[in-house]
Design a protein around this nucleic acid. Structure first.
Lengths: 131, 131
DNA sequence: TATAGTGGTTTCCTAAAGTATACCGGTATC
DNA sequence: GATACCGGTATACTTTAGGAAACCACTATA
């Protein structure tokens, strides 16, 4: 991962897209964190408090242990959630969102704002009441 | 596509995730528009002016006509871009971003802001200079 | 001793996303 | 007449995301 310096002014039409592509790297990073079928739901679930593995699974219908395991690992790698193992018997594990994880809030809100308007726009135009 | 009324206060832990899932639908809509390998690059390219099909393809290395065609159709469906056919010979076609398409700007900027910080954070922590 | 819950992993499979390559009719150029 | 540009489409392929089911060691409970 190269630390890329970019300049918005370098992005107009005539300029090599190389610069623009670099400009997009951080956007893609953010998108990667949020996209996929389960990430948002898991983050949201943790937003409302510490949770145990099976607890999260029960809260999110359809979520298999394989996917949950994978997503939680990614959240840990990105420092968005932490994993606490308690020395009980049998061991119990809790997942908690980090303060850093909570900094995703504005971004999710922005997506929600735009998405809501877009929903209305497309629904209205197509005249459908269901999809 | 059901028009869903939701209430943020209904989302805490103890509440059925059904409500929360509905709350996430618009977020997913927005995410769908931006995710994928090419969408952002195409939108960005159009941001800097009208473009012809081959022109976009040349600007974005690796983009095949099939993918470009598909993505442009989706942009049209979502009213984010328009397709103009000119009666020249041979016909020329231009794609243009709509004013509505430009309303994506704040969302992309928010993603960029968060993504930039995240990049620095993860790079710094891991001590890598390249990925 | 059987059953259920915990926190996962493993294997196999399907569906969707994306790639590669060739091709089409039209026109203009060499 | 051959070649090249335009705006794509068609077909076949690979890669990735995600799903289904079984399984593991451990413990508590009946």
């Amino acid at each position: 991962m190269e630390v890329v310096e970019y300049d918005k002014r370098k992005c107009p039409t005539h300029v090599s897209t190389g610069e623009c592509t670099k400009h997009l790297l951080p956007v893609k990073d953010a998108l990667d964190i949020l996209s996929g079928k389960w990430k948002l739901q898991i983050i949201l679930s943790l937003t409302f408090g510490k949770k145990r593995f099976k607890q999260i699974q029960r809260e999110i219908p359809g979520l298999t242990p394989k996917m949950l395991s994978k997503e939680l690992k990614e959240l840990e790698i990105n420092e968005l959630a932490t994993r606490h193992v308690y020395d009980t018997s049998p061991v119990s594990v809790e997942y908690e969102i980090t303060p850093y994880g909570r900094t995703l809030k504005p971004i999710i809100e922005e997506l929600h704002k735009w998405g809501s308007k877009h929903r209305k726009r497309i629904i209205t135009r197509s005249g459908r009441s269901t999809l």
